[in-house]
Design a protein around this nucleic acid. Structure first.
Lengths: 349, 349
DNA sequence: ACGAGTTCTGATAGCGCTACCTTAGTAACG
DNA sequence: CGTTACTAAGGTAGCGCTATCAGAACTCGT
């Protein structure tokens, strides 16, 4: 008897029951297949999966969390609010969270003060996992604390892989190498480099990429042309001023991030140099600043949004695995970057 | 008989039943009170509200949406990704959305191309309301389209109130007035002003605030010192270059946003002027740029996060009201701004 | 071959809330 | 006073899913 379904029915979407009927099993078995599928015969599982696909079934989130599979809660901690980075990160996380039906809490977490508070929050609101973008992903104290507390965490964009936590990153070394190569290919030989904040592990990698590309291009690196910066505009400005005051000034400067590159552009102008005619300036990160200032910066773009999505995906996998008793595997993924060429580079005059 | 509640109970949190027992009524009545409270005697409502407060009750979202009060879906459209603005907006929206149990979709919506697509999305995913930050809040075509489709929308930060849609804004006129007043109080008399993009209604208001403060300060406005800009760094740079080339150059420039102010700083440096010693530069918006560059900009901060929260709150109220058949009232709210004093202003040399 | 384990599957009973309908209570009217 | 007309409150029955446990279907060892 084809009974008309209740008119309270939320939407036309199929339910577990529909799937169960088609796969000729009980709703319970369908549920099991959906949630990891342990304890279901292969034959049955395949039938259920086929039915799911045929009906284009997707579980109802509300019902799921009501019934007990409480939704996972994640905290996205941020500290240095490079707004451009943050907003991309947020969008990526939101997409992934909504897809995975996870709840996302966004919390600012500055160096010392907040760590204790954060731990409290952890205990209080039952956070299942943390997402740590830079510079928090390099905060060893924080990482150690999280590790001790047994919480899951994914690091987004740290310079190097990390044994205890999952990691999503780009190949900073290779990106810096490629950018340096690009500058060399333009014909530059006196190339300055501004190192990033030494606290962040990516800084060293970017420097290494630079050095290796230089030496492979058979260009000696003049130590006076490798200046320490702090990832801030001001530090980039100062570093560039020092380099431009040298008797033999560089024809190009590669700064480890866009803020410092913007500082370089300002320094160039103070020295009555035009960018890129008299000085090529390249950045890294492709933050909003890169396309705000003029000339717009040639820089390296990280797929921040995808990195955030990947991080959340992995975190969920990791947590599910851990709950099923699987040994906890710290996963890591490396995504592709892109060299974005804009208007701040040119062959040397 | 104090029966132990089922161990499947999600958490220790109170439920409608607990509230109902305490308020001596049925769960149904509690539900009614929570959802707008029509058809409940005041006396009863008060009792229920007291019980809710006493138990610190908060409805379970999953249950709520399962039972049919499907969660509202909002779309946050953005176009000009001033990342700093966007990330604040996102955080504010997320907070509010999670508090109100609304689903938030964030979608980029550039001028023409995407509007049709957006309408499609509207039909497809059943968006209940839109949040429109600048510059979309001034896109009259878009607004008209939304109005015609009968969708609810809240404009965030438009220059002027809008009859058909709700609005959350700051008093741009007064803010510009205050900033101008501040510059006058420092002792400046030759003050330049850079107008924002004429498409955005806030631009005219900021200009008006500037003019009125000047005339109230009994300072004549030199037309050569009021330059048109486009809210971009480049336009600010150009406008400032024009002003600084004048025989009698200004001692201060007030730019209608931070990007243009940053352009002014660059222009000053190209003219070998130091900020703020030789030129005071003030911005508007307090985006990340304002505190990225050096010297950090004195500017006007909008409470973007709170504006986003207020917008979502109002949108929900509006929608609920409309569904209950109440006449649709376009609401609007004005929040307080703040003059943030940093290092780019000083008395004239 | 038979009980004791082990795997797989299904029936049942909610999770917390609200839609819907019904009843009790009050007011209005001829 | 009975009938209609409303409002305030409650009872019932799910929303779609999963926890739990009981049973069915297999493995084995002896």
């Amino acid at each position: 008897m084809t009974e008309v379904r209740s008119r309270r029915r939320q939407s036309g979407r199929p339910t577990v029951n529909d799937v169960a009927r088609l796969a000729d099993c009980s709703p319970m078995t369908v549920s099991r297949v959906i949630n990891g599928g342990t304890g279901v015969r292969d034959e049955t599982r395949i039938a259920v999966e086929a039915a799911i696909k045929q009906l284009n079934y997707a579980p109802n989130r509300a019902a799921r969390s009501l019934a007990g599979a409480s939704q996972l809660r994640f905290a996205l901690l941020y500290s240095n609010p490079s707004a451009a980075y943050l907003s991309e990160l947020l969008i990526g996380c939101m997409d992934a969270a909504s897809r995975l039906d996870a709840h996302l809490v966004v919390e600012r977490c500055d160096p010392e003060r907040d760590q204790a508070k954060m731990i409290a929050k952890l205990a209080e609101t039952m956070i299942d996992g943390f997402l740590l973008p830079p510079p928090l992903c390099d905060d060893t104290a924080l990482l150690a604390r999280l590790r001790r507390s047994g919480t899951h965490a994914m690091l987004i964009g740290p310079g190097q892989a990390q044994a205890q936590h999952g990691v999503v990153m780009i190949d900073d070394y290779q990106a810096a190498y490629d950018m340096t190569r690009h500058i060399l290919d333009l014909g530059h030989r006196r190339i300055g480099f501004i190192i990033g904040n030494p606290q962040q592990s990516a800084s060293a990698l970017r420097l290494a990429g630079f050095r290796d590309a230089m030496s492979e291009g058979d260009v000696a690196v003049d130590d006076a042309l490798v200046q320490q910066g702090q990832f801030t505009y001001r530090s980039g400005l100062d570093a560039a001023m020092r380099m431009l005051a040298l008797p033999e000034r560089p024809t190009a400067i590669f700064a480890s991030n866009d803020d410092m590159a913007a500082g370089c552009v300002a320094a160039a102008h103070r020295n009555d140099l035009e960018v890129p005619r008299d000085l090529t300036v390249c950045g890294f990160d492709d933050t909003a600043l890169a396309s705000t200032i003029w000339p717009e910066l040639t820089t390296i773009r990280q797929p921040i949004r995808q990195m955030a999505e990947a991080a959340l995906d992995l975190l969920v996998q990791d947590i599910r695995a851990a709950r099923n008793g699987d040994s906890r595997v710290a996963r890591h993924v490396t995504l592709d970057y892109e060299l974005v060429r804009r208007e701040s580079d040119a062959p040397p005059g």
